[in-house]
Simulated scan of single mutants.
Amino acid sequence: MTGTAAGRSVALVHEWFGATGGSENVFLAMSEAFPGADGYVLWRDRDARRGLQYRESWLARTPLRHSKAAALPVMPLAWRTLTRRSYDVVLSSSHAFAHTVKLGSSPDTRYLSYVHSPARYLWSPEFDARGSTGLLAGPRRALRAADVRLSRHVHGYAANSCEVRARIRRYWGRDARVINPPVDVDYFAAADGERGGGGYLLGVGRWIPYKNFDLIIEIADAAGLPVVIAGSGPEEAALRRLAERVRVPVTFEVRPPRERLRERYRGAAALLFPAHEDFGIIPVEAMACGTPVVGLRRGGLLETVVDGETGYLLDSRDPADHAAAVRAAAGLDPQRIAKHAETFSAEVFRERLTAWVADEAG
Rank of each mutant, 00 (worst) to 15 (best):
A70H: 11
V101K: 07
A191K: 14
G22K: 05
D186N: 11
S31V: 08
D318N: 13
S23T: 15
H14E: 10
L242E: 09
W79G: 00
H116R: 08
T343Y: 08
I281W: 01
E259W: 13
I229V: 14
G131H: 05
V326H: 06
A70S: 04
G224K: 08
G299S: 01
K102V: 07
P63D: 03
R170A: 05
V185D: 08
P234D: 10
D38C: 01
A60P: 14
A119C: 11
E235A: 04
P249H: 07
M1H: 12
R352F: 02
I216C: 12
A269K: 11
W172Y: 13
R195M: 09
L353R: 10
T4W: 15
A176I: 01
V246W: 09
T304Y: 08
M30H: 13
F279T: 00
I179T: 06
L215D: 12
A328L: 13
H66S: 02
T81M: 00
H99R: 03
V357Y: 07
P257K: 01
V26R: 10
L103Y: 08
D192N: 11
F34S: 01
Y40C: 00
E24Y: 06
E259P: 12
F273M: 05
E235P: 13
R350T: 14
Q335P: 12
A29M: 01
